[in-house]
Nucleic acid binder design. Structure first.
Length: 534
RNA sequence: GUGGGAGUAGCUCAGCUGGUAGAGCGUCGGUCUGUGGCACCGAAUGUCGCGGGUUCAAUCCCCGUCUCCCACCCCA
């Protein structure tokens, strides 16, 4: 038993990718690369430039843009405090380490406690010297530091006076004040792993004064996003998005249409199957609230016929009732008022023009009056693209217009529209329809034998690779049979045979693995031959 | 966060209402030291997801837990 336990301890912990994250391996990564490469190419033809963004941002950026009441912000973000919290934890550790309780009760532990606290305050001083970051408000921290030291010396005095009459409550209050001040240090900038990238793009637009560039500014990005959801088919906690945003300039319907055209072109190029574009307009700050009220009123009339989820949404977000999947609710939903009939004049005109622009571009769409977007910042044009083979998460792209978001984030009034593609889902759909690449083979496998031949083989590999061929050069000598077996398993097209004969003759043997044909070439001829045939 | 299904070799899976594990594929080696795919022979790899309980005995029964899959919710 004890032996078993000891044995157990020797074995290091087996690590595994944490829930909702995964490794992408070859050959699948070849497909990812193809998708991303295609995005680079297609987006470039539409005049979009790539923007590379931080993976984390201030929490507030997402809270403000996506909306506090959305699920994404209220329960799905990976949020953590920056560095100052670590300082506080260090302090707590230090106090514990010195053998003192966090709240000393006698002289001995008091001196330990103040020692640890003093060190903590000093370390804050270091923090200010080390970091030139503007994230920390020097003045505020200086003030806090003074308050803290003052309060601590007061606490010390109180403690030394002993539990004299009337001082107990003073002591308690002093403790509370110190804790409060320490609490402030905890509020180092709260950071969040980005759950999406639109907010970041807007932040970058503002930060780099892009309104001074020729408008509109057209940017695209790709990379991982993070949401703490329950994993499912086509849904991960670290997932990948490819997105694009058009910021600034006008809100011309042609921009909406061109952005949609671009995604469709991209999907077309990838031969994505079962592509279906749905569009809608959800109005603006003027007309949407009025519609929402009418919708709510209509819903209240049929409340008892709805499921519990939808009943709840009547209060929280009536629009979401529209995309309920419940079979039993479908007939009821069909009777609800359409937003298209309640758009203000400008929104209606814009929506009509977007549809016209799409037609001119030959983009096939379906109007879906039940298509509503979840994030707060969307207005007017919204769209969603679905593809086949995705289970119940069949949306592969979602997007819409978000005029006013830049302004909300402290920038100038700016028009905006964009979309995000779920790359994981895109890949999944491509794989389901048999578009997955096969295992990467090699152009040439070099079967060498003998020390002299290895030198030749190394030179041959270098030259072939320089010419762009994929070459496998075995690190150790192998029997010929084995070498050819390896070449076969690796899916090589050719085996270059280099043995004593070849080296002394200066004629290299090239074998075509598919049919077993062999021919001899001089070194330069071989390169020429391969260039012609590969 | 809620519900359902599943975890046995690298992969796909067997394992009899309890007696401490097997197959196929793959990997490696050999038959085969200048010729691959085939065939034959051989080998390695498992804390039977993890922890606890019942039992003389648990991969199997019970409880908990973790992970994966599917769906709800929400979203890309």
């Amino acid at each position: 038993m004890s032996e078993g336990a000891a044995k157990k301890e020797e074995k290091p912990r087996k690590f595994q990718a944490i829930r909702g994250t995964r490794d992408l391996l070859p050959p699948e990564t070849a497909l990812w690369n193809r998708v991303e490469q295609t995005a680079h190419e297609v987006f470039a033809t539409f005049g979009f430039g790539e923007i590379r963004l931080p993976i984390f941002e201030p929490t507030e950026l997402f809270a403000r843009s996506i909306g506090l009441d959305t699920d994404v912000v209220s329960k799905e973000m990976y949020t953590f405090p920056d560095h100052p919290l670590r300082r506080l934890e260090q302090l707590r550790e230090a106090v514990k380490f010195e053998g003192a309780t966090f709240w000393p009760t006698d002289d001995a532990s008091l001196s330990l406690f103040t020692k640890a606290l003093t060190r903590f305050v000093e370390s804050l001083g270091e923090l200010f010297r080390d970091e030139d970051s503007e994230t920390y408000n020097k003045e505020r921290f200086g003030r806090l530091r003074t308050e803290l030291t003052d309060e601590v010396s007061k606490f010390q005095q109180l403690l030394k006076l002993g539990p004299a009459e009337g001082l107990d409550s003073e002591l308690t209050r002093s403790k509370e004040r110190i804790e409060t001040i320490l609490g402030f240090f905890e509020f180092g900038e709260s950071l969040t792993l980005r759950p999406e990238a639109t907010a970041s793009v807007c932040r970058a637009y503002i930060e780099h004064n892009m309104q001074q560039l020729p408008q509109p500014v057209k940017l695209y990005y790709m990379g991982p996003m993070f949401r703490r959801e329950r994993p499912q088919k086509g849904r991960y906690r670290q997932f990948y998005q490819i997105g694009a945003e058009v910021l600034g300039g006008s809100d011309a319907p042609a921009i909406d249409a061109e952005v949609i055209e671009m995604v469709m072109t991209f999907f077309d190029r990838l031969e994505l199957q079962g592509v279906q574009l749905d569009i809608n307009s959800i109005g603006c700050r003027e007309c949407r609230p009025k519609y929402v009220e009418q919708l709510r009123a209509a819903l209240l009339k049929v409340k008892d016929k709805l499921g519990p989820d939808s009943q709840r949404r009547i209060e929280t977000n009536p629009l979401r009732v529209l995309d309920s999947k419940l079979e039993s609710e479908q007939p009821i939903i069909a009777t609800l008022p359409h937003i298209a009939d309640h758009l203000c004049e400008e929104c209606a005109a814009h929506y009509a023009a977007v549809k016209h622009q799409l037609k001119m571009r030959g983009v096939i769409y379906r109007e879906n009056w039940r298509l509503v977007r979840g994030l707060d910042y969307y207005m007017r044009t919204t769209f969603e693209i679905t593809a086949k083979g995705l289970g119940s998460q069949n949306a592969v792209c979602g997007g819409g217009r978000y005029d006013g978001l830049v302004e909300l984030l402290g920038g100038p009034p700016t028009k905006g529209i964009g979309f995000a593609i779920g790359e994981d889902r895109l890949i999944l759909s491509l794989q389901e329809s048999g578009k997955a690449p096969v295992q990467q083979g090699r152009d040439v496998y070099i079967a060498w034998m003998g020390e002299r031949a290895q030198a030749t083989a190394i030179r041959a590999a270098k030259d072939l690779r320089k010419a762009g061929f994929s070459v496998e050069l075995p690190p150790v000598e192998q029997k010929f049979g084995k070498a050819l077996g390896q070449a076969d398993k690796l899916g090589a097209k050719y085996a270059l045979i280099l043995g004593d004969n070849e080296v002394s003759e200066g004629l290299w043997t090239l074998k075509t693995l598919a049919d077993g044909a062999q021919a001899k070439f001089t070194e330069p001829d071989l390169l020429e031959h391969l260039k012609k045939h590969l």
